[in-house]
């Protein structure tokens, strides 16, 4: 099932791209990575947004937990007040889990297509759809710059790039508030501690893996990370913008909305009374004021 629904379609898509892109395997990997990232973009954004939101709420959550540790009922109520739902935090991780098979399938596909032994080629033939002419596509070009795509990069460039790009990506996924507070004791916030350690451990781990991986696979990681960096940058910017807008909206709302909302019915009543006392023309001209503010403002 794994092969039929994930791995084989990916292998064939990779081969088709290789065919369309002038038998350039690096280009095929690049376009394929972009397509996959685009497909998983909604999931990614949702997961990232939820993760940032959760991390930023951590101090409040912890304070509530500490304060009401003996009163779960009250704790739940307080959580609801700040908009935190524990079930939602689990759902926030689901997109990441859904992406895992796609990611694993993608780099298994790269390994199989780049397989450089008779046995791996034979195994590839069993996975290729009938409408793809493998005879014309073979041999899959395995050279790119100084690299043999089926072997690790002997000059250490790709492992360094994998580390660097993944580090940047992880850094952009960490909320700014957490980075500002990184000098504070991490024990105060275990979630922040985990994110901080992920920021280093994941890039180091993948940097080391890249010393052993086929160069084609490392290229995929670098490209995928670069897209992730763009996505992270966009996410931070949009979150910051959202916060600014919220801050701007909050300020005037406190000063102006209350009297305006409460004054409206009284004003309408006074106008109506004045109009009724006036001439027939004045009565015709009377138009009640539009009741926009309270409901619309609530919606906003």
């Amino acid at each position: 099932m794994w092969d039929t629904f994930i791995l084989n379609p990916m292998i064939n898509a990779l081969l088709m791209l290789y065919d369309f892109l002038g038998n350039n395997f690096v280009l095929a990997i690049a376009v394929f990575t972009i397509l996959i990232r685009l497909l998983t973009l909604p999931l990614n954004l949702r997961q990232q947004r939820s993760s940032i939101k959760m991390q930023e709420m951590q101090p409040q959550i912890q304070a509530i937990q500490k304060k009401y540790k003996d009163n779960p009922q009250k704790m739940q109520e307080e959580f609801q007040k700040i908009g935190y739902n524990p079930a939602e935090s689990l759902a926030g991780c689901l997109p990441l889990l859904i992406q895992m098979p796609i990611l694993i399938g993608l780099y298994r596909a790269i390994i199989i297509v780049l397989g450089s032994t008779p046995q791996s080629l034979f195994e590839l033939t069993a996975r290729v759809y009938d409408y793809i002419n493998l005879t014309d596509l073979l041999p899959i070009s395995n050279k790119f710059l100084w690299l043999n795509l089926a072997q690790p990069d002997p000059l250490f460039v790709l492992p360094v790039l994998v580390f660097g790009t993944m580090f940047l990506q992880q850094k952009l996924m960490t909320p700014a508030t957490q980075q500002q507070n990184k000098n504070k004791k991490q024990d105060d916030n275990p979630m922040a501690g985990m994110t901080q350690s992920m920021q280093w451990t994941m890039p180091i781990m993948f940097g080391f893996f890249s010393l052993q991986f086929q160069a084609g696979l490392s290229i995929y990681f670098v490209l995928s990370n670069i897209i992730g960096i763009g996505q992270g940058y966009y996410m931070r910017r949009s979150m910051a913008q959202l916060k600014e807008e919220q801050a701007v909206k909050k300020k005037p709302a406190v000063i102006t909305s209350e009297p305006e909302v409460k004054a409206e019915p009284k004003q309408d009543k006074a106008d109506l009374e004045a109009a009724m006392k006036g001439t027939p023309e004045e009565r015709k001209q009377y138009q009640p004021r539009k009741r926009t503010s309270k409901r619309k403002k609530r919606k906003r």
């Binding site: 390994i111 780049l114 397989g115 032994t117 893996f209």
Partner: peptide
């Protein structure tokens, strides 16, 4: 997945 990357060398 990382372990799987090394299975092709047979």
């Amino acid at each position: 997945a990382a372990c799987g990357a090394r299975t092709a060398n047979t």
